[in-house]
Design a protein around this nucleic acid. Structure first.
Length: 1028
RNA sequence: GCCGAAGUGGCGGAAUUGGUAGACGCGCUGGAUUCAAAAUCCAGUUCUGGCAACAGAGUGCGGGUUCGAUUCCCGCCUUCGGUACCA
């Protein structure tokens, strides 16, 4: 019987479905294990080969843990609300509800095809009202609580109101954004609306005018993590800061706790570092500076209060509220001009502009410690967003301040003696203080402490901690998201809906496109927005991260109608034992989830304080995109400064781009093929030709069937030659080689004796029509591209390895791979590619090896085409192979080294085949060990061997160390650490025996003859080293 | 700039605590089978020299520790990821 993967796989997938094989119960005697994948948003293009990488790993772990006796929760769902789904719907003119439904179905089909053991009865969709009912409910909890600093947890707003009634805003220590303290009587005399506004400064979900990231291109506000380099992460549209009345989440209240508990997580150091950086804690002091002649004080934040004697000027952000107050009349024009100029710049321009610029306000401050009179400037390099928007500038110890001082000719006072540290830079915290009166001679840490104490005593400053983390913008002016369960009365006072009113369903809306001018699509539905009692609804919707911040909890109890998850379910499942997903969510999703989880923990709603115990980042599987650019000077500049990638990102919208395989925007470049070797070239050309013909492509306007007659007009343009036959030039590849054009005619290629291995791209171009006559310049070493010319000008063509994306025409779908090789091969091949956390380009080169292996493995069970297992007792040799494999695979699964597991299966198969082993006692346990990796073939072989229950109910075999003991051990024998011989000695030899016998060996004598043996190192079971 | 990860054959990668560098697979070379090809099977394959036995070199570069270093330490280089006028 030939191994026919698709037949077997369809059969078993149907069996699993019919028998609910993967259904998991919330009540079990077994220990629990929760394995979670980051759920996908269902995009229109379906799964590509990159998605399943993590899913396969988690599937293997789930199946393995199940075999080891755990009750394993392994669910899957869809992140169906939010921008990606909506953008897709807009582009295709389909209602997002419809497109989402369709896309989800496609995803599910694809996932099922790969044979994952998801419990689909627990599927969640964030856009489902029964799900977002609880997203809205959690939001209301955030709305209904504030962060109490003394209790160090979230407490109900009602407690806060009581405190205000009792003693005003100072009666409670809370995390807030209140700028005007009030007394109890102030509070009582406030209107309802004023009280509501005051409470907004405390609520964990609050509505306030804040500077937000407005993205006109998307028609909505974005959170900080959705903005990269001043552009939207999705769509790459410019983003500007503007003040708007918006909902936000007070994640900053949890900054310290989010930072603290990072240590307790089993996450990669890189990921932990990213979270720490994003939170961005810095410890220092806030200091008050008096402004000369004005009754205002300037508050600044510094991490280096020790350098205050070197503070010779101050700088404010141009937007700082005190700028108009302190600017003198003589300087007003200059200041105004500077503010206007910087205000007109986008964030991106402002970031790009590193030139020193600024304006003098005419005002002076008094250094509160040195009592020096120092000028106050405004400059763009001080940001309103961070700290207080004002700094004391210490040109001696800060490079930016130094540059500014040099530019404006300001005084520089050295305050740190770094002479003992020759390599120290200006900002290294080493050296001793000088010119600093009360802290002279102290080391920097001591000086910082002493200065803060001094500032606090004198009442001019205090110890302070700053975070980079900002509150998260939570409003989106879009249709496809959760409606806010909030209504406003005629005064604008906000009220949360009752649980009984939830879910507040997203109303039908045929015109769901975003409106310009910050108006939400939902605002078009007047009848929905206006309630009978005169109240009006909030018309913004929640952002994409709302639903994804808690979905892992819903899986525990997905059909509960009384709570987001039942207490029993949560007490059983606790938290996620293993979370697998990409690093792209390192700061967004993972931080928000941790934040929500901690709030729920404070409220006593979840049993753990952290949601994800262990997290593994799978790497990306990248695609290879081919491209052709029409060259111009601008691009040449990018190209030769090795910044081709930036070019592609920055300018590609403005220039024609052709993904050569798919998009034929540049008609001259019709066809490019990659070949593996010269001997296969002709075959591959024909292959590609066939494929292109099937797909009905044309080449230079000629239908592909007719291209044959033009065949001889084509030359093969070869970028690199790796090796050529002996004696032939050129030999090994060198960068210089690339400057020599190499043409190979088809005749040469047919004669495979000429060239033994051609490596990279071969671009097949028309000789007569295009006249690609010369190779202009050598491409830079790493650019993977070459430049060619024709009468139209220059072109750059080549390929790049990058993220798979539809716009780059480099997406490979798993369907075709599964169809051709089978799901088990696909699964094992993705694992075999390399370590799970590494990114790598998708490359089908090696897949045949894995396919061959599974065929061979299957073949072990068949004799003369019949399934046949021998009942004979296994030999020690066979047992050794089996137990080696059990040991290696179980250990490697535990450390997420799946590629080496696949290797071990191959080794075992090769060796058993060599031994002609078809013994039940060996092969059946091996099938169980293989089953997490290749579940279909395992089920099939298990069934053929007579079992009538699924292999998923089996137990993972234990290995027996005694089978692994060898009678003899190969000892490498080294002289002075250099291996000279490998000799087998009995495994139970003693050190002395080994030493004696090693030295006596003939091949060793040769090396030590006439020399004095100084020392012999014997590590039993390992090696012998003789030192002479 | 700062933080993090990595750098090993023609390629993907292995070497788990300092102990045989290159497992396994791809590719390539030769052979078997075939009219021929595909598929399959067998053998070889780090580089250099040599018919060979064998010798020398070798894990980004330069040093160090050690009987012994891909692994540990010091100093660099390169690539990738994150982040940035963060005071």
């Amino acid at each position: 019987m030939q191994y026919q993967p698709r037949t077997i796989e369809n059969k078993w997938q149907a069996y699993w479905k019919k028998n609910d094989t993967y259904k998991v119960s919330n009540t079990s005697e077994k220990p629990k294990f929760y394995v979670l994948d980051m759920f996908p948003y269902p995009s229109g293009s379906g799964l590509h080969v990159g998605h399943p990488l993590g899913y396969i790993a988690s599937d293997i772990i789930s199946r393995y843990k199940r075999l080891c006796g755990f009750n394993v929760l392994h669910p899957m769902g869809f992140d169906a609300f939010g921008l990606p789904a909506e953008q897709y719907a807009i582009v295709h003119g389909i209602h997002p509800a419809k497109s989402t439904e369709k896309n989800i179905q496609r995803y599910k089909d694809q996932l099922e095809d790969i044979g994952f053991c998801f419990d689909w009865s627990r599927e969640v969709r964030t856009s489902d009202p029964s799900y977002y009912k609880w997203t809205q409910w959690i939001f209301l909890q955030l709305f209904g609580h504030y962060y109490d600093v003394e209790a160090n947890k979230a407490l109900p707003i009602s407690a806060l109101v009581k405190a205000f009634e009792r003693g005003g805003s100072t009666a409670v220590l809370a995390n807030h954004s209140n700028e005007t303290p009030f007394t109890a009587s102030d509070w009582r005399s406030m209107s309802k609306k004023e009280q509501d506004d005051a409470l907004m400064n405390y609520r964990l979900a609050y509505r306030k005018v804040t500077f937000v990231n407005w993205c006109e291109g998307l028609g909505t506000v974005l959170a900080n993590d959705e903005v990269k380099d001043g552009r939207s992460e999705r769509g790459n549209y410019p983003v500007e800061r503007r003040p708007m009345l918006q909902w936000s989440l007070r994640i900053t209240a949890y900054a310290e706790r989010l930072l603290d508990s990072i240590d307790s997580l089993e996450w990669t150091p890189a990921l932990k570092a990213m979270q720490r950086n994003w939170i961005g804690k810095s410890v220092g002091a806030s200091i008050l500076f008096e402004v000369e002649g004005i009754d205002e004080k300037l508050e600044i934040f510094t991490t280096r209060p020790d350098t205050i004697y070197g503070a010779t000027f101050m700088v404010l952000a141009p937007e700082h509220p005190l700028v108009p107050v302190i600017s003198t009349s003589e300087q007003k024009t200059e200041v105004q001009a500077y503010i206007t100029a910087s205000g007109s710049k986008s964030d991106r321009e402002r970031m790009a502009d590193k030139e020193v610029s600024g304006a003098f306000t005419g005002a002076y401050a008094i250094n509160p410690v040195s009592e020096k009179r120092i000028p106050i400037f405004i400059a763009e390099y001080v940001l309103m967003d961070y700290g207080t928007g004002a700094i004391m500038a210490v040109p001696s110890d800060d490079t930016r301040d130094h540059a500014f001082a040099s530019h404006f000719n300001l005084e520089i006072i050295e305050v740190v003696d770094r002479s003992a540290h020759s390599n120290a830079t200006m900002e290294d915290k080493v050296g001793t203080l000088i010119n600093s009166a009360i802290i002279n001679g102290l080391s920097i840490p001591d000086a910082i402490n002493k200065m803060i104490t001094h500032l606090e005593q004198e009442n001019i400053g205090q110890r302070q901690i700053q975070y980079k983390l900002r509150d998260a913008n939570y409003s989106r002016q879009r249709y496809w998201g959760e409606p806010f369960p909030i209504v406003y009365d005629s005064e604008g006072v906000s009220f949360g809906l009752e649980l009984s009113d939830l879910p507040l369903e997203l109303p039908e809306l045929s015109d769901f496109k975003p409106a310009s001018g910050a108006k939400s699509p939902l605002a078009r539905l007047e009848h929905w927005q206006k309630l009978d009692n005169g109240f009006i609804r909030e018309t913004d919707t929640m952002p994409g991260f709302a639903g994804s911040s808690w979905y892992y909890l819903r899986y525990m109890d997905p059909h509960n109608e009384a709570a987001f998850a039942g207490r029993d379910a949560m007490d059983y499942w606790q938290d996620v034992d293993l979370y697998i997903g990409g690093t792209e969510h390192a700061v967004g999703h993972l931080l928000y989830s941790r934040f929500w989880h901690k709030v729920l923990f404070d409220l006593g709603k979840v049993p753990t304080s952290e949601p994800f115990k262990k997290l593994v980042n799978q790497g990306m599987i990248q695609g290879r995109s081919n491209f052709v650019y029409r060259a111009n000077e601008q691009m040449a500049e990018y190209f030769f400064s090795k910044k081709l990638k930036e070019y592609r990102e920055d300018v590609q919208h403005n220039y024609p781009v052709a993904g050569i395989y798919v998009d034929f925007a540049i008609p001259e470049f019709k066809l490019a093929i990659e070949i593996k070797s010269a001997s296969k070239l002709v075959h591959l050309i024909n292959d590609t030709y066939d494929r292109f013909q099937e797909e009905g492509w044309t080449l230079l306007g000629i239908p592909i069937e007719e291209i044959g007659k033009y065949w001889n007009n084509f030359d093969l343009f070869i970028k690199k030659i790796h090796r050529a036959r002996e004696g032939e030039k050129p030999s090994p590849i060198s960068p210089d080689m690339e400057s020599t054009p190499v043409y190979i005619s088809k005749d040469m290629v047919r004669d495979t004796n000429h060239v033994t291995a051609i490596h990279v791209d071969i671009h097949l171009v028309s000789n007569d029509k295009l006249d690609i006559t010369k190779f202009l310049k050598a491409s830079p070493e790493n650019a993977n591209a070459l430049i060619i010319t024709n009468e139209d000008g220059e072109y750059i063509c080549g390929h790049a390895v990058e993220k798979m994306s539809k716009s780059k025409y480099n997406v490979i779908n798993p369907d075709e791979v599964v169809e051709r090789y089978g799901a088990d091969v696909f699964r094992m091949y993705e694992m075999f590619l390399g370590p799970i956390e590494q990114s790598k380009p998708w490359d089908t080169k090696g897949i045949d090896g894995v396919s061959k292996f599974l065929h061979r493995f299957y073949g072990l069970f068949f004799t003369d085409g019949k399934f046949l297992l021998s009942e004979t007792d296994p030999s020690t040799e066979e047992l050794k192979i089996l137990h080696q494999t059990i040991k290696k695979v179980s250990e490697d699964i535990e450390r997420f080294s799946f590629n080496t597991c696949v290797s071990q299966f191959m080794i075992a198969t090769n060796e058993l085949k060599k031994l002609g082993c078809n013994k039940r006692g060996i092969l059946l346990p091996l099938v169980t060990v293989l089953s997490p990796f290749a579940p279909h073939i395992a089920e099939e072989l298990n069934a053929l061997s007579g079992s009538d229950i699924s292999i998923t109910t089996a137990s993972f075999p234990a290995y027996n160390e005694s089978y692994l003991v060898e009678r003899e051990t190969d000892y490498p024998i080294s002289i002075n650490g250099k291996k000279r011989a490998v000799v087998a000695f009995p495994s139970d030899s003693t050190k002395e025996e080994l030493e004696k016998r090693a030295v006596e060996l003939e091949e060793i004598q040769k090396w030590i003859e006439g020399k004095q043996i100084r020392k012999v190192i014997v590590i039993p079971g390992r090696m012998i080293n003789i030192v002479v």
